[in-house]
Amino acid sequence: MQTGIAGYGVYAPMNRITVDEIAGVWGEDGVSKSRGLNVFEKSVPDPDEDTITISVEAARIAMKMSRLAREKIGAVYVGSESHPFAVYPSAVHVAEALGVTPHVTAADLEFACKAGTAGMQMVFGLVAGNIIDAGIAIGADTSQGRPGDPLEYTAGAGGAAFVIGKDNLVAELEGTYSFTTDTPDFWRREGAMYPSHGSRFTGAPAYFRHVINAANGLMEKLGLTINDFDRASFHQPNGAFPLKAAKILGLPLEKIEDSLAVKYIGNTYSGASIVGFARQLDLAKPGERILLVSYGSGAGSDAFSFIVTDAIEDARKHGVPVDKMISRKRYINYATYARYRGKIRMK
């Protein structure tokens, strides 16, 4: 029996700060920064929001769309690089909030920005192997950029959740393939407040090498060409990298443009590629084939091919459109942003 996605949900906090507002604080040209990054604004969590709360909200939407009984859920994985606890899983909070405990396996995952898709692969494996009926994989983050660092313009907050199973499928999995190496382009040491990165080293040997090789590896494995895909979503650290990757692969830009939630909510790290994928699912017609390729620094990419089913049109009535999350917003200034993100040290 085919495995696939039975429901999906996206959550983004409603606060926004514009690239122009951040640039103004650091004496940079906001218009030029925004154009270069292809990002206009980013989401900022309220002080009482974190990866756990975002994960719960996204998973509740995904469960509602799937219409699966909670007893069917046998696994909950939360991928993030901003788990609120170093020890005390985000996944148990999510499982408890969804009411799927205690007959469930749960774990937190970390692989920079691809921990969410790593969780999806794990659930697909458990479902395909008939070990569980269905499971939930989530990628969510509230990552930080050091004040004045280029990352500060894009580090947003949000996440996506997927209920994976064999019943009520809105998209069937055709196959998945990963490309992984040890590439030190971005890291955060234990206890460090902000991540560090290798500046330009994050491009060619890191993001592009892994995304392109994962996409090509998947196509070779499935006997497909880039022309077989109707839509795509790649990891989106900014709005420029995925467009460049599409160009390298020979994918028409209009097939990836709809995925670029990064322009409006920033880079949601573990959520980024899958928030874009969810937006493509919102817009896709039955029968369309979607290419999803994540990227996590360190480094690796997971590529997936999905075929959208006829059931998606009815299922959407039970979900919440990604655009609804993007369009609800409240603009904040840099001072409020600094307070909300704990950038003002009180002691």
Binding site: P47, D48, D50, T53, P84, V320
Partner: peptide, 23 residues
């Protein structure tokens, strides 16, 4: 679903329900 409050810098974080306009 939101944080209620964190107990200091190293304590547990309490979570639970709050209310928002329909979303």
């Amino acid at each position: 679903f939101r944080k209620y409050y964190p107990v200091g810098d190293e304590g547990v974080i309490y979570y639970g329900y709050k209310f928002r306009p329909l979303l």
